[in-house]
Write a protein that binds this DNA or RNA. Structure first.
Length: 425
DNA sequence: TCTGGGGTCCTAGGACCC
DNA sequence: TCTGGGGTCCTAGGACCC
């Protein structure tokens, strides 16, 4: 069984922990430059204030109802998040930190009855020890736990879903656009095909789902059917990309100012790299004008540069990023946003260790053999699938970084899932 | 006047190699 | 003269998440 523990209105409640007089009052938190609304307490939601809404648009309601307004304080939220996660990892046998305010918990082999009371206990302890209220949903797969959590949010109780009849009624009442993994585009597509609830989606044929929503959609459908395809990621992976970007509070229209801003982004990126113990071998710099103001001339561009050797050093990275910036910067525009992304990330210490290389090669050979076998078997069943199934190993070469290890992603559920499909056919 | 920031994964296709 | 299969590496773009 999986649980999803989600902090309620996280940023708003972080502010409340340090200012209890705000309890039961509307609270909102604003983005950088106080541009838009990124968190709302229940009371603020009830006033009709929308997530992501520009601050100036909601200003009237905010003043009318004396809503408490905060500029975002990410250090505080990060710190509160750490406290919550620490409590959770002390209480649950397995945990996966999914985001700043969400954590998956694993309870392998636990009985339903004890789990329900135990989860209730966790909820209370987190509230008492950190001040942050949380919701917990329990179910056989992560996707179902996410859905159960939505119910838990409304009822203030832990929600446990197990029996298939419970699952079906849960999904029947879940609009398709609220399903984890279905965004705006997919919701549009599905509705156009008369799929309005998660239950309807669950019952669609595999071939159709794979054709229109790729492998992600199929995985999602299996998860809804109670087949777990998304394992708990117990160890936190190092980041594959690190990005620092900002919207400017005012327009930037000189190269000097842009150079200064971009340099500070690089500084932050390299800081994050060092914190993770990694180094980057590719950098991207991008700039653009205000996309909301269509009366101004628009321009946006980016440039990606490959470094000769992976590095985490600020001056080295700045050297390449500024080279890129010079190539794309055009005078005469009012720039509103810029950013730096570093990728081609390798473990910093690993460069001296060729050990990794051998382990990886062995794994790779094994992987390719497995994929080959599955593909052969699948070809016999092509009529079951409207498009041929392609198994791919995505590789990310870091050769230029003097590091021979290749990075791959191939989710384990590829093999298990298709094995099940084949067994069934 | 004023519209966030930081990530993940998948797919298709081209260049190239043996 | 005619015609391949299997694989790597990379890029661009699209979808999604919080």
């Amino acid at each position: 069984m999986f649980a999803l523990c989600d902090c309620n209105n996280f940023y708003a409640n972080c502010e409340r922990v340090f200012n209890p007089s705000l309890n039961n009052k509307p609270v909102i938190v604003l983005s950088n430059n106080d541009g838009s609304i990124i968190a709302r307490s229940n009371e603020a939601k009830a006033l009709g204030i929308q997530m992501g809404q520009p601050y100036f648009q909601a200003r009237k309601v905010i003043e009318e109802h004396k809503v408490a307004v905060f500029s975002s304080n990410y250090e505080l939220y990060g710190d509160m998040s750490n406290r919550v996660m620490t409590v959770l990892s002390g209480l649950a046998p397995e945990t996966e930190i999914y985001s700043i305010d969400e954590c998956f918990l694993g309870f392998p082999g636990w009985q339903e009855a004890e789990l329900l009371t135990y989860a209730q206990d966790i909820k209370e302890k987190v509230k008492n020890w950190t001040g942050i209220p949380v919701s917990i949903g329990l179910a056989p797969t992560k996707t179902l736990a996410k859905a159960a959590n939505k119910v838990a949010k409304k009822s203030e109780k832990v929600c446990l879903i197990r029996e298939s009849s419970d699952i079906d009624s849960l999904l029947e009442n879940l609009p398709i656009e609220e399903l984890w993994g279905i965004g705006r585009q997919y919701a549009k597509l599905l509705k156009a095909n008369s799929i309005h609830t998660a239950l309807q989606f669950k019952n669609m044929p595999d071939g159709w789902i794979h054709k229109h929503l790729t492998i992600m959609g199929l995985r999602l459908a299996y998860e809804l059917r109670g087949v777990s395809c998304l394992p708990l990621e117990k160890v936190q992976q190092t980041k594959k990309a690190i990005c620092t970007s900002r919207s400017f509070g005012h327009y930037v229209s000189t190269y000097t100012e842009m150079e200064e801003a971009v340099s500070s982004f690089v500084f932050k990126c390299s800081e994050k790299l060092r914190k993770e113990g990694t180094a980057a071998s590719v950098v991207t710099v991008f700039i653009h004008t205000n996309t909301f103001n269509t009366t101004l001339p628009q321009y946006s561009n980016s440039q990606t540069l490959r470094l000769p050797v992976a590095t985490d050093s600020t001056p080295e990275l700045i050297h390449y990023v500024l080279k890129g910036l010079k190539a794309i910067y055009k005078p005469g525009y009012a720039y509103k946003k810029a950013g730096v992304i570093v990728t081609g990330i390798v473990p910093n210490h690993a460069i001296q260790q060729n050990l990794f290389d051998e382990v990886d090669r062995a794994k790779h050979t094994q992987l390719m053999t497995t994929i080959d076998q599955i593909n052969k078997r699948l070809r016999k069943h092509t009529d079951k699938f409207q498009s041929p199934v392609k198994f791919a190993v995505q590789t990310h070469s870091t050769k230029e970084a003097n590091w021979p290890m290749q990075r791959k992603y191939l989710s384990p559920c590829y093999t298990t899932r298709w094995d099940q499909v084949l067994k069934a056919s």
